[in-house]
Nucleic acid binder design. Sequence first.
DNA 1: CTGAAAGCGCTAACAC
DNA 2: GTGTTAGCGCTTTCAG
Lengths: 348, 348
Amino acid sequence: MSTKVKKRTLINDIASHLEVSIATVSLVLNGKAKQNRISDAVAERVLKYVEEVGYKPNHLAKSLRTGKTNIIGLVVEDISNPFFATVAWLIEKQAFERGYRIIYCSTDNNTAKTKELIAMFQEQHVDGFIIVPSEGIEKEVSNILREQTPTVLFDRYLPGLATNYIVVDGAQGTYEATRHLLEQGFANVGFVTTDSTQTQMEARLHGYARALTEQNLAQKVKRVTVTKDTQPIVADIHAFIQANPELDALIFSTNYLSIYGLEAIGRLGRRIPDDLAIISYDDHDLFRLYTPAITVIAQPVESIAKNVIDILLHELQDSGNQSLARPQSVVLAPTLIIRKSSVRLSNA
Amino acid sequence: MSTKVKKRTLINDIASHLEVSIATVSLVLNGKAKQNRISDAVAERVLKYVEEVGYKPNHLAKSLRTGKTNIIGLVVEDISNPFFATVAWLIEKQAFERGYRIIYCSTDNNTAKTKELIAMFQEQHVDGFIIVPSEGIEKEVSNILREQTPTVLFDRYLPGLATNYIVVDGAQGTYEATRHLLEQGFANVGFVTTDSTQTQMEARLHGYARALTEQNLAQKVKRVTVTKDTQPIVADIHAFIQANPELDALIFSTNYLSIYGLEAIGRLGRRIPDDLAIISYDDHDLFRLYTPAITVIAQPVESIAKNVIDILLHELQDSGNQSLARPQSVVLAPTLIIRKSSVRLSNA
DNA sequence: CTGAAAGCGCTAACAC
DNA sequence: GTGTTAGCGCTTTCAG
């Protein structure tokens, strides 16, 4: 009848069973046996018994005591976007190996939600932050910084703020992409981007603009308003293409815009690349698999993840030193992966 | 010079500033002012000051004391899959409104990883679990149950285990889909699924099989091995279609298989639905947007999320009651959304 | 109506 | 080498 609730083993139980003090157990468990001159014999006994009963220290108590949670808060734009999903996954893996856990959330690029998430993570006492900043969160981020919580931004940065950040040189990517299209003989290259003024989007636009300006060519830029509902986006791109029949190539500034773009192009019955060449910023399974395969400006996801976690863990390890050092910023190069969608058939 | 670290406000600071005891503050903050006959005047003063200085109780200390973290662990197969992403998002939203936070992780349908994640969540002392179980984790789940942690499974269940679960009647979905294809005059309907023996996959296969058996028609089933690398999957489906030229319709048991399938079909130059009709289990942006739009068996994501969170929160509220009650199981109906990909042109 | 005080489980001085 | 003990910040009983 008695619904016996299996009680967790406590450090106390270990100590009394082994007839040592709880301090001994704690010290052994935290690898401080040596420096406290605890006999190897005792240390071993402790470890063995702990293993045997599967004792796990209570994280909450430990964190309350030490002030460290070993948890990192990861705030991305949209975890279901393959780019962020991949980076998050890589970060998680590396952090895990070094004893940190990641908890993540999507902001949907919504300022209010981002603020909420940051507040929530602060309440959870995360040791550090990795943030893909949405617009207007300068204040929150500088608050975090003021409280000395190690933080790294990626994908874009906040211009007014001295923070660590890892970004990709989007301007270089779109510049190369545009040049590639021109070299292939496409003369009217358009650019489809979002209405965001975030650094990464602006950079991508600038690369395109520079390549055209260099050749004294006119720009054709479409800024799409991104909404939860996808139909208007497709319609918008559809209208843009229809209104500019002279366009023979199009660069999309982000993977989801390309997907909507492909749909719009399909509806218009334009053939890729014969009627319209296509390049997307960001790689995606679909772009590899599509017929024709889509040329992309690929971001170095492994490198982004590695840099992010390295800088963050470095600060985490240091904390205490007045190593407020100087914030680090890393700019990585993207890679143009040329596939069928941007190559003149006559050249193929 | 002195790098002043902004110290968090503590309940102590509040109490001493207001010249009341910390108990009073705590009681007011936890809405227990009334039942402890604290004067409205005092309660108001406390609330006002708390608001003013932006005091947030330390979660860790609170949890350590109360034994509740107000955190729910959500373990899904792949958070970047739109189906899970949507359900997770809906669950998160509802949980948030009721004072619970969600932390989530992807298992990639990998048993070892699932076990690790469950262990990690247990260490974090989550109050409850929502799990999309991968194969072979019966033991871990029954451990959770034994420790009386409220748990709800969804998408599939573990046959041997008496747990709460929410699933969709996949058999009904594929049965209806198959019938629809037959009614449209497609006579050779194939089925592409994974090599998984999980309940949801088996059910989907059975619905298809039943519809064909009823008509004395032969089944053509392809079981694809799902790997991280997507190319072999596409090749596999490609080979299947090529090896069975008589097929005039295909049902895919899950959204990503359909995507690979579309690619394979594209490579083969088959036209949809003229040469081959298509129905996918699971809806997806892409299926709505594709040309032709893809007929799908859509799962009621809102309803799944609502049921999951309702059952879980109910148990969470109750905990203490010997309301081990009887585990609840809910089976929801999917909806066949007919689009162009499964409709005979002559009928259109 | 309010305050004192006993812990939640763990860590890490510090004393022996 | 090992044990004692003072908290980390909060909740909640119980005495006033």
